[in-house]
Amino acid sequence: MRWPRVLIPVAVIAAGAAWWLTAPGTVTAEHYEALTGDAEHGQWLFTAAGCASCHHAPEAKGEDRLVLAGGQAFASDFGTFYAPNISPSASGLGSWSLLEFANAVTQGVDDAGRHLYPAFPYTAYTKMAPQDVADLYAYLQTLPASDVASKPHDVGFPFNIRRSLGGWKLLFFSDDYVMPENGNARGRYLVETLAHCGECHTPRNALGGLDKSRWLAGAPNPNGKGTIPSLTPDKLDWSAADVAYYLETGFTPDFDSVGGHMAEVVDNFAKLSAKDRQAVAAYIKALPAP
């Protein structure tokens, strides 16, 4: 079939518009120029954001979990993603500027200007304050270097075309909060931004976008059998003190203990302050039923 001549410019414009719309976005450089990172506060952010839980080597224990060599596998409906090396070495983020780091963490764009897969929760981190990004960057520089090469993701067509992620971002990438602040800015920042709880506890649609109408309402476990539990009040009947105690000790109100990937999340929360854990608990208890 020959295209009616009049449609050709329309198609060209549409293709051009699609190309433009799917272009990787970047942060505003001026927001970062004057910033000096505070590594000490960066350590708090690093713990709250759980960076090591995904980026340490698969079998690392104890202090070795601070060597961010990558290599852990994350299965999904779209393929298997491997956490990359983000240690300060040539195989990791050694040569990355703060601006490049900010683009990766808050915009999901790497140092070569390519879209990153949202297995990396920049969809949550996008709400990080620029000063916090600078602090986190400063802290990462203090960690041990590893020369282990990052493993390529195992993702099939069409998801292996990174430009297609531009379309995904148009649909699902937003820096809006889900819940109102409710006088608990710290709890909301911890849950929705840093600890990225929604990434596992919220169900996803067929394209892998979070179904925010069922925010934290529980979801199938992408890593295999079982489910990630709901945190909404129709299912979770723990008190705020129970939630805070669980995040500190890993014990449920029945004194069963935490397991799976959540065990590492609890390890992180245990290192934060009681006030932080209470803020998270208050946020959870304020959730509406879906």
Partner: peptide, 13 residues
Amino acid sequence: ACKACHDTYRAPE
């Protein structure tokens, strides 16, 4: 001690 073992050897519910 509970966590260290459940982390690796217990499947989620």
